[in-house]
Amino acid sequence: MSFLELQDVSIAFGPASNRAEVLSNINLSVEENEFVAIIGFSGAGKSTLMSLLSGLEKPTSGRILFKGKPITGPGPDLGLMFQNYSLLPWLSVNENVKLAIKKVFPKLSSQAVNEKISRYVEMVKLGPAGDKKPHELSGGMRQRASLARTLSLDPEVLLLDEPLSALDALTRSELQDQILNIWEQNKRTVIMITNDVDEAVLMADRIIPLTMGPQASLAKEFKVNMERPRDRHTLNDHPEFMRLKSEITQFMMGLNEESKSLQNSTRTTMPSIEPKDFNPPRVTPNMRSQNLTLGTPTSSGQGAA
């Protein structure tokens, strides 16, 4: 039996008449202390998948098992690190971490709590900024604070929802190293969502692509058979790294093309009608063109997450 298991999970939103199935037939099993990366395009339903894993959303059908038992709701053992930091803006970094620690370890003395806070804040190298409010920090620092808060829950599963996608390239690689470092020192199960192939290959044991939404599902997985610790400086010379990277990239591009052609098939030609008193226009300008395209790739396939 796996540590974390998704069995035929589907989720749909909206009323019955206009139901949008975001994810369908997701099957995934994650072993203990495994680092799994789920890679997909924007709008594929990655964050929805993360909400399911963390228990924030319930699946429409199927089961999610954590240590053999179905997940009933969110909790500190499923440590979710939010995509947009979600630090409480009225609390300093230390206080944000303290809120989490106080909840998970309510019986700790205040001295022990303070020790724990400083340990986690040091762990993400935020020590000097501990007393600052989130708005005084840079994006990378905020994400590190968020990581510290999530780690301080001491979760059995670490769920990272696109943790680094909002950061610049330099901060990003620095944080990747930090996360890997922390994981290697204190192994635990990690599921990370990302849209960056390099990042996935560098960090994960297993990479699973998510197909294009709607009705996204998991495609065939890629095993990363590279020894740890991985060194980003020599990685570009590593044949396995290059092979995996190009394979995954090609697979992902294929997904995108497939979805594009899928979208193109719904092109419908509309008759040319233009009312006489067409002033002011009540619809968007492109309605006036002779060919009206329903569901262009940009409007539905690649919409925002």
Partner: peptide, 14 residues
């Protein structure tokens, strides 16, 4: 209130 902040509360099981 920001929905993310409520989600934080849910994750922390406050």
């Amino acid at each position: 209130i920001d929905k993310d902040h409520l989600n934080v509360a849910r994750v922390l099981k406050l």
